[in-house]
Amino acid sequence: MRLARRVVDKDRESVLDEFEDLIVAIARKRDRAAFRALFDHFAPRLKTFFMRGGLDPAAAEEIVQETMVKVWRKADQFDPAKAKASTWIFSIGRNLRVDFLRKEKRPQPDFNDPMFVPDPEPDGFEVLSVAQEADLVREAFDALPPDQKAVMTLAFYEEKPHSEIASELGLPLGTVKSRIRLAFQRIRSGLGESV
């Protein structure tokens, strides 16, 4: 069981490495084949993601298209040292969904701003790569107890504050908050941090 899973994970990792390379190829060479491969993997998954959040297929398709347009145009801003392809594409899609549903901007910090406070130097050993850390986060997430997992999943799909998710689930807000906090603790301990 454990062995089989590791093989699958390894396969997956080799595939995922390629996605980062595809974005880099788009940035450097405006590579249509790379863009097509990226589209074929992510566009159908983005569509499901948006539809689970309650969008109808046509609206979901529209935001998928907008997301992939941004992927093409902003490929030169993608930094494989800072994010996995899936993380980066998720964040682009999330911003477009906020804009589509609420006509709001979604403010973000600017790494080039002179007042931006940079990360401290890593303290030496045991620095995980972005991909390693993302995999550990995902493993810890998969291992969450069902009630915590349900709250976290809804939070991502629904594009609503957790207070609204609480009423949707018919749960007191305090319960939702404590599930979120417990989930955070487990994910931290999954990353080998004290909680």
């Binding site: 998954r45 983005l46 993601f49 899936s86 993380t87 980066w88 976290m152 799909y157």
Partner: peptide, 9 residues
Amino acid sequence: EAMGGGMMD
């Protein structure tokens, strides 16, 4: 964000 990306993926 990595978690959200993983869910989408």
